[in-house]
């Protein structure tokens, strides 16, 4: 299934946040979105997932999602959004319970995603007992359990320390290699973008527009073997972003 954004414009009151965003996320493709703080990345992701209506423009789905996809557009949140009163297993179950798919299948799916995210032995633990990295694994397991066509990930790793982040990136790539999900992945971290993205969308400061799209054709699993190439791309991205980021940083925020 492909996801197409056509001329998305959005403003909060008089304040334009997004201007003229056109973009597509192809099947099995990870599109990373980078941009300075407050440029509208999270807003864009909410619009893509149907949690918010754009002022103008449309988000279209082309082609059918996989037949067994329970929730074609699925989020992974920066703050994990786990229910503290449910165990790891219960948190995954939560999103399956509303679908009439039978007890055995729920059990099987839960076991499968917990195994894939290496959480099987923590099935009965509560979120408070888990480290940040483990919590985000649970959130990813939960997202995988509904077999999404597109994963919408809003800075999923930015609450984690850098070692944990590296480990989770490896895990994500491994998961992607098993099942080629598509993803729209928002991040501040250029290293993450270069490690995970097939394409990297660079946005300008608010009102956010697409400044450039950088394509990386090195396969994800092979990227650690090309340190110089990836470093060069990362430098190029940083040069593009630096001025925007500096300007954005000096802007007086009129909201919040």
């Amino acid at each position: 299934m492909e996801l197409i954004l056509e001329k998305i414009n959005h403003s909060y009151g008089d304040m334009p946040v997004l201007t003229d965003i056109s973009l597509s996320v192809g099947s099995g493709e990870i599109v990373c979105v980078v941009g300075p703080s407050g440029c509208g990345k999270s807003t864009l992701l909410r619009i893509i997932g149907g949690l918010e209506r754009p002022t103008s423009g449309e988000v279209l789905m082309s082609g059918e999602p996989p037949a067994d996809s329970l929730n074609p557009l699925t989020y992974v949140f920066q703050d994990f959004a786990l229910l503290p009163w449910r165990t790891v297993e219960g948190n995954v179950r939560l999103v399956l319970e509303d679908h009439r798919i039978g007890r055995e299948r729920v059990g099987a799916v839960v076991d499968d995603v917990l195994a894939r995210t290496k959480l099987t032995e923590f099935a009965a633990a509560y979120p408070r007992q888990l480290s940040g990295g483990m919590k985000q694994r649970v959130a990813i397991a939960r997202a995988l359990s509904v077999n999404p066509a597109v994963m919408l990930m809003d800075e999923p790793l930015s609450a984690l320390d850098s070692q944990t982040r590296d480990l989770l990136m490896d895990d994500l790539i491994e998961l992607w290699t098993q099942v080629r999900f598509s993803a729209c992945y928002i991040t501040h971290n250029l290293a993450e973008a270069v490690r995970l993205g097939h394409r990297i969308v660079v946005m300008s400061r608010r009102p956010g527009r697409i400044r450039d799209i950088v394509e990386i054709d090195i396969p994800l699993s092979e990227r650690p073997g090309f340190p110089t190439e990836t470093a060069a791309i990362q430098r190029r991205l940083w040069e593009m972003m630096r001025d925007e980021a500096r300007a954005a940083d000096r802007e007086l925020s009129d909201v919040a």
Binding site: G49, L51, L70, N71, L73, T74, Y75, F77, D79, A81, L83, L94, V95, D98, R142, V146, L152
Partner: peptide, 10 residues
């Protein structure tokens, strides 16, 4: 954010 999560999973 928990409510939004619930909505996002339909």
């Amino acid at each position: 954010s928990l409510i939004r999560m619930g909505q996002s999973f339909g």
